[in-house]
């Protein structure tokens, strides 16, 4: 316990030092405050927004976009990925075209989505869903195809039908790779929400970035960056805790006491 605290303390030294230097530099006027305001100014602006009530509005709309895009992208990836991983025919039918789509940098879709769906929520959520889809899809397919044939034979000995094989062997066996997929999918979701909100939004953390640039208020930009970092880290930690709880059975380095 004590050594763990020591380790955390060790990791804190540099950040604390940097923030102190930054604060001092801003206060002493070494850096222009219109370029880089002091950390306390950034914190103050966050608190101010929180008191006005706008902070929650921005955070919640961004969370909604990431959440909706993540769910849609993951759901599509689960269905299509399961089919492609399990049925050879589906693989031959779907995988080539999906691989072709994957080679399009996802941000290149933005103009098309804006043209089709306008500047509202659907185009943003779609963009995020597309970003989330691919890592989840790829990991599900490789997870399913990597399931040990020998375990599947055990199911066959008991005359399991396809559904039972999927539910009782293939799903649990491919869970680790699925969880890797949704974690990297979520990471991409956060990246794409920034892109979507930069390109046209009147609310959201990404909009704060644009607003900060247009009104020359760097504290807004930095506040938004910090909030993005905190939310991204927080949601990833959530998935990570689900992961480590559902994968206790794995015989790997992480689970070694």
């Amino acid at each position: 316990m004590k050594s763990k605290l020591n380790l955390i303390g060790l990791g804190m030294i540099l950040p604390v030092l940097l923030i102190a230097i930054w604060e001092a530099a801003a206060r002493l006027g070494w850096i222009e405050s219109y370029l880089l305001p002091a950390p306390t100014v950034v914190i103050e602006s966050i608190i101010e927004m929180a008191q006005e009530g706008t902070l929650w509005a921005h955070v919640s709309i961004t969370l909604y976009r990431v959440g909706a895009g993540f769910l849609i992208g993951t759901a599509a990836a689960v269905f299509i990925g399961a089919a492609v991983g399990y049925f050879k025919k589906a693989e031959h039918l779907l995988d080539p075209i999906l691989q072709a789509f994957r080679s399009i940098p996802s941000l290149a879709w933005v103009p098309l989505f804006l043209l089709w769906m306008g500047i509202g929520e659907p185009s943003k959520v779609t963009l995020i869903a597309v970003g989330v889809f691919f890592p989840v899809y790829l990991n599900i397919v490789s997870g399913i195809q990597g399931v040990d044939r020998k375990l599947i034979e055990v199911g066959k000995v008991y005359h399991f039908n396809s559904l039972q094989l999927v539910r009782r062997i293939i799903l649990p066996a491919s869970l680790p790779s699925f969880l890797v997929g949704i974690r990297s999918g979520l990471g991409l979701g956060w990246m794409f929400v920034v892109a979507a909100e930069l390109l046209g939004a009147s609310e959201g953390l990404g909009y704060l970035l644009v607003l900060g640039q247009n009104t020359s208020s760097p504290e807004l930009i930095i506040a938004s960056i910090i909030l993005f970092a905190a939310l991204g880290k927080g949601t990833d930690a959530l998935l990570k805790s689900i992961e480590s709880r559902s994968l206790k059975w794995q015989d790997n380095l992480q689970n070694a006491q």
Binding site: L151, E153, V154, V157, P172, A173, W249
Partner: peptide, 17 residues
């Protein structure tokens, strides 16, 4: 009701159960 039971060379246990 069930036909044959099989024991393989390897245990083939489900690691998550």
């Amino acid at each position: 009701p069930s036909g044959a039971g099989v024991i393989f060379q390897e245990p083939r246990l489900m690691p998550w159960l």
